[in-house]
Design a protein around this nucleic acid. Sequence first.
DNA 1: ATAGAGTGACTACTGCTGTAGACAAATTGC
DNA 2: GCAATTTGTCTACAGCAGTAGTCACTCTAT
Lengths: 130, 130
Amino acid sequence: MGKEEKTRLGEQELELLRFVTDRAPVTARDAVAEFGQSKGLARTTVLTMLERLRKKGFLLREDENPPAKYRPAQAKSEVIQGMIADFVERTLGGSPVPFVAYLVQSKSIKAEEAEQLRALLNELEREDAD
Amino acid sequence: MGKEEKTRLGEQELELLRFVTDRAPVTARDAVAEFGQSKGLARTTVLTMLERLRKKGFLLREDENPPAKYRPAQAKSEVIQGMIADFVERTLGGSPVPFVAYLVQSKSIKAEEAEQLRALLNELEREDAD
DNA sequence: ATAGAGTGACTACTGCTGTAGACAAATTGC
DNA sequence: GCAATTTGTCTACAGCAGTAGTCACTCTAT
């Protein structure tokens, strides 16, 4: 995720990126009508953000025929994982422990996720034993 | 964390806040000498950021006698958990699933971290059993 | 042919973040 | 007493994020 390492996304840009990632492919009009309207943003505000995201490399635009269609430059999961990696590195100093502590204390981890984490830890234990 | 809901912190501000949170109480001179120098920042840059963080309510300053000492307005864990909560809400739409997926895929957990994670999961298990 | 609708580019503004010099006042060392 | 050092405030700039109006062009409906 080279581009993201060079630029930062603002709050609103992030949410627009997620919107497009969830709904791709999206026309500007779609984004204006749904994303923009739900946030009370002017048409040109949404257009500007789409263009900035495209210029930053987070969105791609297919515009052989109007209306142009936008989609994320990376698969949805990559977009999200890049953001998480970024957050963990910049805010938590690289350690995921405080994040898990938060999830445990806020009781937002469900049994399935806890199970996945246990499986991961077991696998790491096996690898360390090798 | 009412203040943080009103303002956002930039990257550098965040790291300075973490530095002060880790080392409290900290004089401006400490911050300039350690934080600033490690990042190649001018003295007045660090001073400005300290003052902005104080004005935003993230730092408190005891200045009955020079040199003033800075400390976080909230306990370290609260600062961190507030940021995580913020991130989960804004970037992950409230769901911990993408973070768990990130942990599973990143394979970057250190042994010490794995141990701490195990303890957290054990705690979760105990709570679920109650 | 023309009005209306849709589209995308251009432009511009505010406040914030990151950055840092200049300055005055207080303190310290000689 | 004075120079040097330390401290904190004031000020200012560039670039970015968020915001949005205007305009020209294309397409559509009449």
